[in-house]
Amino acid sequence: MRLMRVTVPVGFFILAALLVTGCLDPDEPGNLVPKTVVEDLSLPCIEVNGTTLHCETFGDRQDPVIIFLHGGPGGDYRGMTKLSALADEYFCVFFDQRGTGLSERLDADEIDIDTYVEDLDQIISMFADTNQVILVGHSWGAQYATVYISAHPGRVSHAVLSDPGPFKGERFGDMPIFTIDLTAEWLNDLMWMNTHISPDDHARKDYAMLIGSHDASPNYHFSETDPAPKWRLGAVCQAAMIASGTNEEGEYDWDFTTGLDEFTDTVLFIRSGLNEVHTESYFQMQMADYPNARMETIENVGHDMEWVKADEYIQAVREYLGGE
């Protein structure tokens, strides 16, 4: 009791002193997570469809345009930046999609699949005018490319789809993306975060989402020695996009394939050899949605192949684009 009479007031005094003297604000961009283009005006950006997107371009604007579509939804393009080596032959456009990466944060009701398609259409017009473009999409980005091609097949000349997410929602349930292992450290850490921070603001939500980015999906076989870097994840964006592809019964009901019959050019699918989520049979099923498709495998790499084996990836893209 005596000890308590001393320690509790001292503890409260320390807390009060910290509260009065001022602490860092977890919701202020730049503290826990980087600022977006809205808060840091030095970041390269474009205005598209009523929002501000983080965007960088490389190469000569007279060259054929490649637009890179990152994974997620709710990821960012930093892990694809090594592909800017293609800028010697192509005009390369990288952007963080609506509501994620270093792009402006938005409420969930401003983010859905249809708006994403409209965003991409405006970006293509911005950089290629009426010319066709090449789309290079990774994971969710490959789905994004596919839903866009379905809607606007005449706007795309070539497509490279690496480890694409399911073009139809019904395929999603069979994919071993997440492993719920109750003894996994990331899950333990994620739940224990509830003892000191709540995911209420964009910054805090994006911060909390990163906890599982290393280990939540072991079947992807991400590199442990050379992990792909990230700018900043978009938690609200991810939730909104998943909701956008989910019906009232809670079933994944998207179908991005409805207009693919009109796209008759050959599509290059690239598979990461170690990946156990996107198996070869899964690839065959996905490729069958396109009238013409072929597959290449980059061996000894996981789902982060654009970063870990960028040279082989670039070579595959050059051969595909040069050979068409």
Partner: peptide
């Protein structure tokens, strides 16, 4: 919050270490 080198290298090199107030509630 004290951020790890891994976080700084992989995500955000300028993350601020220090006492944060009002990190939420349950």
């Amino acid at each position: 919050y004290q951020h790890t080198e891994e976080y700084r290298e992989e995500v955000y090199k300028d993350a601020n270490d220090g006492w944060y107030g009002n990190t939420g509630g349950m």
